[in-house]
Design a protein around this nucleic acid. Structure first.
Length: 749
DNA sequence: AAAAACTATTTTTTT
DNA sequence: AATAGTTTTT
């Protein structure tokens, strides 16, 4: 290491410094949000290297590629280095993929194996289930996919999966075996394999584990609360209790339980690693006082936690703002205006602002209003681009170039553009290939000889094979090879044709062109560029990882995607029961669901530095149906002192009804009378609490007998709370109707 | 076998 | 509301 660099530890607090300077033996660092844990990890790595440890001996594992990249850059910055060959800072999955490329043959794969994502996995499983004569509904197949995924996350084999209720009659051993056979034939690994297989290999070959153990003298794991059992098992093979394992985490920020993350890993760490030293970072350097109070207040409602309270030396700052829109559009309109106002009047820039939400689709209305308001925004979505049908089609061709046994890609590519090879021909081909124990493409030439197919199907397949062979023979750069193949098979032409037909299309051809350009720029940026390398990047690196945040645009993203980030101004939208907390998550895992949703809310709130603004809509369209959601229960948990004492809810859209009438629209649903907007005086903090922290309706509950003056007697099916609560009632005479609760009275008899 | 018509399902979060 | 998947028609 360059002897010149000196690490400055003066800027660190005593606990941070202790963690950086911790010597040998395991250490658990419980680091609250904004407590400077990345600083600690990067300083520690820098310190180790400065004191003479070889970069080879350091392994840092993160959860996302974004975190890995940030960590790497900060270490380089501290050391004034451009590169540190041998230093491994990587995600679990990237490391797993790298490991498996080296040991592929031990598990029946080649070095060129393909990584299958959820959709690919589902396609394989559909095949597997069909082969077992157990054709299931799409839902059933997906349920099995989840079951296998969960098994692998828990460190089990696919054969040990717990059958989902949709396909409970099937034997998991059979399903799992068939699935794994097809995966092996396709030379593919799923995401779970990237963790599970390395763990299995290292467990079976202790000498190999030993060599890694010797190499990685210093192992650091970030976001330890999000590791699953398989990751933990893998970790233990090369970082056993006696090693220098340094884990950092926060049980309050565990938000991946649905993916198999085990908070237990962090809770049990002191027992599993008895020699472990435990340090806590509780001083927050990110958020103003009110924001921190709000976050602490909400998370305090969780019972299963180690318990910690963040504190700050910062001033209390501005109180948290609340807004209630009439519907999602009203909410969006206000948010856009508020962002514009903060930029105009308080010196914030759009790039300082993030809008966080529970689910991706909640951004739709906002995107529209932001555009209209002339505010630049960037939606940080998981992997939207690569999920487009046409991009996946094009990628299928790329995949076949890299791995000819990739059966999922084969089926996909063969079908687009259509070549006269339909369902029946495909089934025949699959049967033929299966009998030979080969992948479809490997058996295709023989199938042509054996005249398995006739007529158009036969010539279509022959053309397809010829195009692939020609592309392979082409000795050009990877991107040129792909371009050539796509031209040869007429995909571009096909898409151009489709674009014309669809008129209002978003340019499918243009999207594939973008893909080709992405491959080209990958080629230019990467030293040993290969299509295989590109594909791995596509699978493992999401848009979230590469998003240029604060590039001057408002960031729109899910709370999950926002983890680890911070912004001067944070909006959290859609704070309604059923949305955030998400209804499905709530009945998950007996009660654990609500606590995880609350942790998610905690993560959202703690992203904010200076301003925190929470919004909800009284009604929202979901699945094409208007729903009146109660305010999020988390709003009720905000400490009053931290919340702005006044808020002005959006008045009901009386104006719109009037306009409709004026323009001659039918007036069937015009409200007869509309409540006036409440005056400011009515909106002191107590009202905020009643309205926001919402009543659950005026004493009605499902099952209750009620009376309506016009419609007669009935039974309450559903209570729809809100500003003007309504009830869905099964009337004895007229069937199900939705009526305002104020017109209904409880009724005996 | 392909296109058109119909239907069921979705929006929970992601490596 | 939009779409992916399924069935029917050509």
């Amino acid at each position: 290491m360059s002897a010149g660099a000196v690490l400055d530890l003066e800027g660190l607090n005593p606990v941070q410094r202790a963690a950086v300077q911790h010597d040998e033996g395991p250490l658990l660092l419980l680091a609250g949000a904004g407590s400077g844990k990345t600083r600690v990890v990067t300083h520690r790595i820098a310190r180790l290297l400065l004191e003479g440890s070889s970069p080879d001996s350091v392994l840092a594992l993160t959860f996302t590629n974004r975190a890995a990249r940030e960590m790497r850059e900060r270490v380089f910055g501290l050391l004034g280095a451009d590169d540190l060959p041998g230093l491994t800072i990587s995600t679990f999955h990237s490391l797993g993929a790298r490991f498996l490329r080296q040991h592929a043959t031990a598990v029946g794969r080649t070095r060129a194996f393909t990584i299958y994502d959820d959709d690919d996995q589902t396609a394989v499983l559909r095949e597997a289930l069909n082969d077992l004569n157990a054709g299931l509904s799409a839902k059933g197949v997906r349920a099995w996919r989840r079951a296998i995924d969960q098994a692998k996350n828990a460190g089990l084999d696919a054969r040990e999966a717990t059958p989902p209720s949709e396909g409970a009659l099937l034997d998991p051993a059979e399903v799992g075996a068939r699935y794994e056979l097809l995966m092996e034939r396709a030379d593919a690994f799923d995401f779970g394999d990237l963790i599970l297989r390395p763990a299995q290999i290292l467990t079976e070959v202790p000498s190999l584990a030993e060599s890694y153990r010797r190499r990685w003298r210093w192992v650091l794991v970030d976001e330890f609360q999000d590791t699953n059992r398989a990751q933990y098992a893998w970790l233990r093979t090369f970082a056993p209790p006696a090693s220098n394992l340094f884990v950092v985490g926060d049980d309050d920020q565990s938000i991946y339980g649905w993916r198999g993350a085990e908070v237990e890993n962090i809770l049990q760490f002191p027992h599993e690693y008895p020699a472990a030293r435990v340090l806590r970072l509780e001083q927050n350097y990110r958020s103003d006082g009110h924001i921190l109070q709000a976050a602490n207040g909400v998370i305090a409602h969780n019972e299963r936690r180690l318990g910690k309270d963040l504190w700050t030396e910062r001033s209390e700052g501005t109180r948290i703002e609340l807004y209630e829109g009439h519907d999602a559009r009203g909410e969006a309109r206000w948010v856009a205006e508020r962002i514009a106002g903060l930029c105009r009047e308080e010196g914030y820039a759009p790039g300082d602002v993030a809008v966080l939400m529970r689910a991706n689709h909640l951004s739709l209305d906002l995107e529209e209003t932001l555009t209209r308001a002339g505010l630049r925004y960037a939606v940080v979505r998981g992997r939207s681009f690569y999920d487009r049908a046409e991009v996946r089609d094009a990628l299928a061709y790329v995949r076949l170039l890299v791995n000819p046994n990739d059966d999922v890609a084969f089926r996909r590519a063969l079908g687009v553009p259509s070549r006269g090879v339909g369902k029946t021909s495909l089934a025949r081909l699959a049967e033929f290939a299966d009998a030979r124990g080969e992948s479809a493409l490997a058996a295709a030439a023989a199938a042509l000889d054996a005249a398995v197919l006739r007529g158009r199907a036969r010539s279509g397949l022959a053309d397809f094979l010829a195009a692939l062979a020609a592309a392979r023979a082409e000795a050009s750069s990877p991107s040129a090879q792909v371009r050539g193949l796509l031209e040869r098979v007429g995909l571009m032409e096909h898409l151009a044709h489709e674009d014309v037909e669809r008129e209002a299309g978003e340019g499918r051809q243009a999207n594939v062109e973008r893909l080709l350009q992405a491959i080209e720029s990958y080629e230019q940026e990467t030293p040993d560029a290969s299509l295989a390398g590109y594909l791995e990047q596509v699978k493992l690196v999401s848009e979230v990882d590469v998003a240029q945040l604060s590039g001057g645009a408002v960031s729109l993203m899910t709370v999950h995607a926002a983890k680890g980030l911070e912004f001067p101004v944070v909006f959290v939208i859609g704070l309604e029961d059923g949305v955030f907390p998400n209804a499905r998550a709530l009945d998950d895992r007996d009660g654990a669901g609500e606590e995880e949703e609350r942790r998610l809310c905690y993560v959202a709130l703690t992203r904010a530095e200076r301003r925190l603004i929470l919004t909800r809509a009284r009604q929202r369209r979901t699945f094409g149906e208007v729903r009146h959601n109660a305010p999020s229960r988390f709003l009720r948990e905000l400490p009053r002192g931290a919340v702005e004492s006044r808020y002005v809810p959006e008045p009901p859209p009386a104006a719109r009804a009037w306009q409709r009438r004026a323009s001659g629209w039918p007036r069937e649903h015009d409200p007869v009378a509309v409540a006036p907007a409440p005056s400011d005086d009515e909106l002191c903090v107590d009202v905020v609490y009643d309205e926001f922290g919402g009543s659950d309706g005026p004493g009605f509950s499902p099952g209750m007998r009620v009376w309506h003056a016009q419609l007669g007697a009935g039974r309450v099916r559903k209570v729809n709370p809100g500003m003007r609560p309504s009830l869905t009632i099964d009337f004895d005479d007229v069937g199900q109707r939705k009526v305002l609760a104020s017109f209904v009275a409880p009724y005996q008899g």
